[in-house]
Nucleic acid binder design. Structure first.
Length: 617
RNA sequence: GGGGUGGUAGUUAAGUUGGUUAUAACGCCGGCCUGUCACGCCGGAGGCCGCGGGUUCAAGUCCCGUCCACCCCGCCA
């Protein structure tokens, strides 16, 4: 048996070796990242999680070590292949001192290790893709062989950074007198919000646990319990459709504090974020972060998580169009009379000239894919001048009155060559379409400024119109309304603003939270506005209401998407690159082939009958 | 549920108006090579063209369906 592991313990990681180690005997464990077999000299790139070191084998090296011919490390090294797991012992030498050249591309490029001993722990089949950063392989294959994908240096770096993120977070909250507490994953099902994954209860036939969407109610109970400051790094589960930045299970940094207001939360969170960026990205972020009311975000960007690196803006022209009674454009008149809106995305002339008429038509197809009836556009006469530039290449251009054109141009600060994209009618569709176009064009025209643009979005509406025209909680039903809006709860719920806030970074919602209701009468009014009786809620959230009879403190909190934070900090372009074993867009794990069917016996034990989905027609 | 992109050797791609034996690079296998680091040179193997159906004398190529992956809308209190 070899001396490795038992006697030869690892002395260094491959990527850490430098000129200062020259002359030292070292023991390295790792995987063969590449080989260059020159016959009398064999070079191996040895990889571990820290990086690479070049290992060199040669008959002269063996001889110096007193090995008989054909017995030394070199004699065995010719069988080495990619991804073999090996150990070597040897001496660190300066490459330039032993006939070689420094490799400037490698952190350890000044040195190499002359191998005197070699052990092959295990051989490897030819991997399905090369374990390198710049090899682009179909994601399907990467996910199937995730353990190999995870060997790639870029993912190794991502997860090492993520690990530091956990530690920094824990340090920060402990320093600020927070208590780290756990909450159950298997919880009572509560209606509303995201779909839950369900877990059948064998001991309680016919009943189900829900996998927690978040620890929301439990963390509020911690406040009732007097824990005062709580945090947790916790897995959450939501059975919704997946996206680039959404996985069915994901990790939150969950926070709740007592005896605080918004400013306290924001200050605490900004402190954490600034430290994350300082220590993990080496970037100083200015405080306090910018703040923007929800209404402004929707108005100027069409979304509640605007990417402020993108200079493009939306403009609501409804009032102007109304004032001019359509301004000669029939469809405008019809839309505003019907209570619809007229909204535009403005592309300033310097950028607009890069967008051809063909591309405009392609964008219309994109818009239709998102539910738009069409995509009106107009170019402010590039050759013109004055305050009422003609609208060229536009379905509205012929009839739009000079007065309307002047008013619009003034409102948007428009100039010759500007390209305007119109959305008419439904505000929700208009905002979706224009904000998407804004994002796509911002990227395509390379308009995004460099840097980190943090933003608190505030003053969210308390309620949204649900499917049946009833009011539903925009955040969750325990979110406190603004005190000055409490009276509106019964008269004009749509006008009530919540003490809720999101933290947005470069177009990503990275955290969201609110100040909660701690007064029973306010809670009752919110329930009433939601069209629910106290009995309804007693059934669903009774334990919380019960708890709130025993002196609940004023409290509030926030929850971070830790995966998204990791993604942004590492520069990853997908959540899947910061989650060790992610699921596909269909919610499956290609590596383990999950989910699967289970045996009839297992179902019987749970008193569950499974039936196939109806055949597609 | 809807819109879009893709699937050809282990990997990444090319494949013309449908027309001989489906190309290339990297990787892999064998041989040579003592300073390579994208090593080099010589030789070689490797294909359910995602799957199913159709049109055709003939389909990787055209049509229909379907599966998978990715991006987006809806959805995600």
């Amino acid at each position: 048996m070899s001396k490795f592991i038992v006697e030869h313990k690892r002395t260094h990681y491959c990527g850490d070796l430098r000129a200062v180690h020259v002359g030292q005997k070292v023991v390295l464990f790792g995987w063969v990242a590449g080989r260059r077999d020159l016959g009398g000299r064999i070079f191996i790139d040895l990889r571990d999680r820290s990086g690479l070191s070049q290992v060199v084998f040669g008959p002269d090296i063996d001889k110096r070590m007193g090995q008989a011919e054909g017995q030394g490390a070199h004699a065995h090294a010719d069988v080495l292949r990619s991804e073999f797991c090996i150990a070597i012992a040897g001496t660190v030498v300066l490459r330039t001192a032993s006939g070689g050249q420094t490799n400037l591309k490698l952190a350890s490029g000044e040195i190499e290790v002359e191998a005197s001993e070699l052990q092959i722990f295990s051989r490897a089949d030819t991997p399905p893709f090369q374990i390198e950063d710049d090899v682009e392989t179909r994601e399907e294959i990467r996910l199937k062989y995730r353990y190999l994908d995870l060997r790639r240096p870029v993912l190794q770096r991502n997860f090492q950074l993520r690990s530091k993120l956990y530690r920094l977070t824990r340090d920060y909250f402990h320093e600020n007198h927070f208590v780290e507490l756990e909450t159950p994953f298997m919880v009572k099902y509560t209606p509303g919000g995201a779909r839950n994954f369900l877990v059948p209860s064998r001991l309680n036939p016919g009943k189900f646990y829900a996998m927690a969407e978040s620890p929301q109610i439990f963390k509020q109970l911690f406040m009732v319990a007097g824990m005062d400051r709580y945090f947790q790094i916790v897995r959450c589960f939501r059975d919704e459709d997946l996206r680039l930045d959404r996985q069915p299970e994901f990790t939150q940094i969950d926070v709740e504090m007592s005896f605080i207001d918004e400013e306290d939360i924001w200050a605490m969170i900004e402190g954490l974020v600034v430290r994350m960026w300082k220590e993990l990205a080496g970037v100083d972020i200015a405080r306090p972060f910018l703040r923007m009311p929800y209404a402004e975000a929707m108005g100027s960007y069409g979304e509640d998580k605007p990417d402020l690196r993108n200079p493009l803006k939306l403009h609501d022209l409804t009032a102007i169009v109304k004032e001019h009674k359509g301004g000669g454009v029939q469809i405008f008149e019809k839309i505003v009379e019907g209570g619809g809106i007229v909204k535009i995305l403005r592309i300033p002339g310097t950028h607009a000239q890069k967008i051809s008429g063909t591309e405009v038509r392609k964008l219309e197809d994109v818009a239709k894919g998102m539910g738009a009836a069409g995509l009106g556009s107009a170019r402010l006469d590039p050759a013109g001048s004055g305050e009422a530039l003609a609208w060229t290449q536009s379905p509205f251009g012929k009839t739009a009155s000079e007065a309307l054109r002047a008013a619009v141009q003034k409102a948007i600060g428009g100039g010759p060559g500007d390209l305007l994209f119109f959305q008419l009618g439904n505000p929700k569709v208009a905002n979706t379409v224009l904000s998407q176009l804004r994002q796509q064009l911002g990227k395509k025209l390379d308009l995004l400024e460099k840097g980190w643009r943090f933003l608190w979005v505030t003053d969210f509406p308390m309620f949204e119109k649900g499917e049946g025209g009833t009011w539903v909680a925009a955040h969750h039903p325990f979110t406190s309304p603004k005190p000055e809006h409490v009276e509106l709860l019964s008269t004009d719920p749509g006008a009530v603003q919540a003490r809720a806030y999101d933290l947005v970074l470069n177009g990503n919602e990275i955290a969201g939270g609110s100040i909660r209701i701690h007064q029973r009468e306010v809670q009752a009014k919110v329930f009433a506005a939601l069209g629910l009786t106290e009995d309804d809620f007693r059934q669903k959230f009774g334990f919380l209401l019960d708890a709130f009879r025993y002196g609940p403190p004023p409290h509030g909190g926030i929850a971070f998407g830790l995966d998204r934070l990791s993604m942004l900090l590492t520069g990853a372009t997908s959540l899947r690159d910061v989650i060790t074993f992610p699921k596909t867009q269909n919610g499956t794990d290609l590596m383990s082939d999950c989910p699967t069917e289970v045996s009839q016996r297992q179902l019987d034990e749970l008193f569950i009958a499974s039936r196939p989905p109806p055949a597609k027609q």
